[in-house]
Amino acid sequence: MIKLNINDKDYEVDESQGVPLLWAIREQCKLTGTKFGCGISQCGACTIHVDGKPTRSCITPASTAEGKKIRTIEGIQPDENTLHEVQKAWIEMQTPQCGYCQSGQIMSAVALLEANPSPSDEEIDAAMSGNICRCGMYGRIKEAIKRASVKIQKTSTL
């Protein structure tokens, strides 16, 4: 057993057989917002942050994350009653359709904006093209990122 720190909370996890973070988080920690899509780092549905870096949890062994700070979709709100600017923009644009890929999309977008608060179109494409959306909501995702970017910059200059 190892200890994982997820969204500032400690969880005991059985890391045997090289279980990837994805399955430890979903089945052992019961945080099901992080999704299984492909299992080979092709679709981005399982994206989480490990020490702030966007990480594909489906190919990352849980054992490698011991002692690191893991953040999932359940942990991005500043507090229980306040949405992250990215979530607000997502709702404003009515972005999700089926919604299955959206945790991963949002985690990639949050990581992008934390590293680069005012990304260009090309930078958004580069950061987001690892996340597949079969409902094809790329136009809305892109627009939502731009809206969130404006809000985040405003907040940071206050």
């Binding site: 945080l31 099901t32 917002g33 992080t34 999932t72 979709i73 359940e74 709100q77 949405l83 979530q87 997502w90 709702i91 009515q94 972005t95 999700p96 919604g99 959206q102 945790s103 949002i106």
Partner: peptide, 10 residues
């Protein structure tokens, strides 16, 4: 259906 699709609760 959208609010729960942005916070992982869906």
């Amino acid at each position: 259906d959208i609010p729960e699709k942005v916070n992982g609760k869906a």
